[in-house]
Amino acid sequence: MSRAAIISDRRSTGLSADVIAELVAELGPLWHERHQARLASKPRKRAIGAGAKHRLVFVDRLLATLVHLRHGAAHDVLACWFGVERSTITRAIAEVRPLLAERGCTISPGVRLRTLAEVVDHLGAGGKTGIIDGTEIRDRRPAAGRKDRDKFISGKSKRNDVKTMVVADGDGRVLFCSPTSPGSCADIPHARQSGLVTLLAEGPAVEILADAGYQGLGAQTGGHVITSPHRKLKGNAPDWYEEMHERQRKAHSSRRIRVEHGITHLKNSRALSRHLGRREHITDTVQAVAGLLSHQQTTNLTSAR
């Protein structure tokens, strides 16, 4: 009953039944292969396959993970839905979440982007414009006495955050989410850590739109990054200059607003509106949600055509 209710109602996972079916067909054999390899790697007294059988089949493990990512449902609640112990749900999510994160972002049926280098090559080959923006995800406060505790305090929101860089195309489709860094890291250092500056300086000619947080990155990338127009005249600037600057600023904002829409869709998943799990899992969570969102976006575009 739980399985049927989750698949039939898109509000449960944010995914259509067709996308869930594709996930089952793709990830099921991979999960089974890794599970068998994990069993074979341990010293055993019984043959592989002996003993108690799983009460939670792979389809239910996948659905539990999707509901957890979408709504942040507690493991205890999911355990009640599926009639298993809490530890079983915890183990299932820990196994399925990395599989979802490794899939990458779907740009067409069967074609995915898994690294930032692949994203830059994709944009360059198609002559497309990319849009980047950093977003912060609220995180738990680090334990008292931890040496790097202050690193997670964002200078913008004044709270404990982690930051990720989102790359979208001109249609607002998410192409990549970078590994997370502590919230105190500014946008430009985070872009450097992700390798964006090196890829743009040495790679194909790509136009990347960014906000004022990336001001100065254009000079480091040979003009590939275009930021909001800089206000050169301050104070008693003439009216014609104010009008020109406002017109340029609005034109730039109207082009890059689509990445903001992509970030909004990402944060429709409660797992990214506020992360309550272990900090070492947050990168997998971000990239898993980005991959699921891009898959659903691509499916919607394909069906619309």
Rank of each mutant, 00 (worst) to 15 (best):
A64K: 01
H190W: 04
R256P: 01
D284G: 04
S87W: 10
G183L: 08
S154W: 08
L233Q: 15
D121Y: 03
N268R: 13
T198G: 13
T65A: 06
I263M: 07
Q297F: 05
L199R: 14
R138Y: 01
R231F: 03
A219H: 15
L199H: 14
L199Q: 08
P238R: 12
E260S: 06
L293N: 10
R46V: 04
H281S: 12
G72T: 05
R138H: 08
V166Y: 00
A94Y: 12
M244N: 05
P204T: 12
V259N: 08
C105F: 11
T302K: 00
I226Q: 13
A304T: 06
R274P: 11
D161I: 10
I107A: 04
R34G: 11
N268Y: 10
A201T: 14
S41F: 01
L56R: 01
R70D: 01
T164C: 08
L62S: 07
V119H: 14
R91M: 14
H54W: 09
R159G: 13
L100I: 07
R278P: 07
V77I: 13
A143Y: 00
S294R: 08
L123P: 00
H275Y: 15
T65P: 03
R274T: 15
I107C: 09
V197A: 02
H68V: 01
R10D: 00
V174S: 02
I137T: 10
